[in-house]
Amino acid sequence: MKTKWLISVKDNTMDLVVKELKEIGVKDIEALDSIGVIVIVPGNHKIADIKKIDGVLSVEEERDISI
Protein backbone atom coordinates (compact mmCIF):
# COMPACT_ATOMS: atom_id res chain seq x y z
CA MET A 1 0.00 0.00 0.00
CA LYS A 2 1.28 3.41 -0.93
CA THR A 3 2.50 5.65 1.90
CA LYS A 4 0.14 8.51 2.64
CA TRP A 5 1.24 12.11 2.94
CA LEU A 6 0.23 14.43 5.73
CA ILE A 7 -0.30 18.08 4.85
CA SER A 8 -0.85 20.82 7.40
CA VAL A 9 -2.41 24.01 6.06
CA LYS A 10 -2.69 27.61 7.22
CA ASP A 11 -5.89 28.76 8.92
CA ASN A 12 -8.87 29.14 6.59
CA THR A 13 -7.09 27.71 3.56
CA MET A 14 -8.39 24.15 3.71
CA ASP A 15 -10.87 24.48 0.84
CA LEU A 16 -8.34 26.27 -1.33
CA VAL A 17 -5.65 23.64 -0.82
CA VAL A 18 -8.09 20.76 -1.41
CA LYS A 19 -9.15 22.42 -4.66
CA GLU A 20 -5.53 22.80 -5.77
CA LEU A 21 -4.77 19.17 -4.89
CA LYS A 22 -7.67 18.02 -7.04
CA GLU A 23 -6.48 20.22 -9.88
CA ILE A 24 -3.05 18.58 -9.90
CA GLY A 25 -4.66 15.14 -9.97
CA VAL A 26 -4.68 13.96 -6.35
CA LYS A 27 -7.72 11.72 -6.03
CA ASP A 28 -7.70 10.30 -2.52
CA ILE A 29 -8.04 13.30 -0.21
CA GLU A 30 -9.14 13.31 3.45
CA ALA A 31 -9.61 16.78 4.94
CA LEU A 32 -9.46 16.96 8.74
CA ASP A 33 -11.11 20.31 9.40
CA SER A 34 -10.74 20.50 13.17
CA ILE A 35 -6.96 20.26 13.06
CA GLY A 36 -6.28 21.77 9.64
CA VAL A 37 -4.62 18.70 8.20
CA ILE A 38 -5.13 16.92 4.89
CA VAL A 39 -4.18 13.27 4.38
CA ILE A 40 -3.65 12.21 0.79
CA VAL A 41 -2.60 9.18 -1.17
CA PRO A 42 -0.19 10.71 -3.67
CA GLY A 43 -0.05 9.73 -7.31
CA ASN A 44 3.12 10.49 -9.24
CA HIS A 45 3.55 13.72 -7.36
CA LYS A 46 6.57 15.13 -5.64
CA ILE A 47 6.48 16.59 -2.14
CA ALA A 48 8.02 19.75 -3.51
CA ASP A 49 4.98 20.20 -5.79
CA ILE A 50 2.62 20.01 -2.85
CA LYS A 51 4.69 22.47 -0.82
CA LYS A 52 4.32 25.04 -3.58
CA ILE A 53 0.55 25.20 -3.12
CA ASP A 54 -0.61 28.39 -1.41
CA GLY A 55 -1.73 27.67 2.15
CA VAL A 56 0.41 24.56 2.68
CA LEU A 57 2.49 24.71 5.85
CA SER A 58 4.27 21.37 5.76
CA VAL A 59 4.20 17.98 4.07
CA GLU A 60 5.35 14.73 5.65
CA GLU A 61 5.21 11.06 4.84
CA GLU A 62 3.05 8.96 7.11
CA ARG A 63 4.91 6.96 9.77
CA ASP A 64 4.09 3.57 11.21
CA ILE A 65 2.76 3.71 14.74
CA SER A 66 2.45 0.96 17.31
CA ILE A 67 1.61 0.39 20.92
Binding site: L32, S34, I35, V39, R63, D64, I65, S66
Partner: peptide, 21 residues
Protein backbone atom coordinates in the same frame (compact mmCIF):
# COMPACT_ATOMS: atom_id res chain seq x y z
CA UNK B 1 -4.42 0.90 15.95
CA UNK B 2 -5.29 -2.47 14.47
CA UNK B 3 -5.90 -5.62 16.48
CA UNK B 4 -2.24 -6.31 15.81
CA UNK B 5 -1.35 -3.11 17.66
CA UNK B 6 -0.16 -1.00 14.74
CA UNK B 7 -1.44 1.83 12.59
CA UNK B 8 -0.44 4.91 10.68
CA UNK B 9 -0.23 8.64 11.29
CA UNK B 10 -3.20 9.33 9.05
CA UNK B 11 -5.58 7.30 11.21
CA UNK B 12 -4.27 8.93 14.36
CA UNK B 13 -4.78 12.41 12.94
CA UNK B 14 -8.26 11.36 11.85
CA UNK B 15 -8.89 10.15 15.40
CA UNK B 16 -7.68 13.43 16.91
CA UNK B 17 -9.87 15.33 14.46
CA UNK B 18 -12.85 13.16 15.42
CA UNK B 19 -12.21 13.73 19.14
CA UNK B 20 -12.07 17.50 18.69
CA UNK B 21 -15.20 17.47 16.53
Amino acid sequence: LSNGGSGGDGGILAGINWAIA
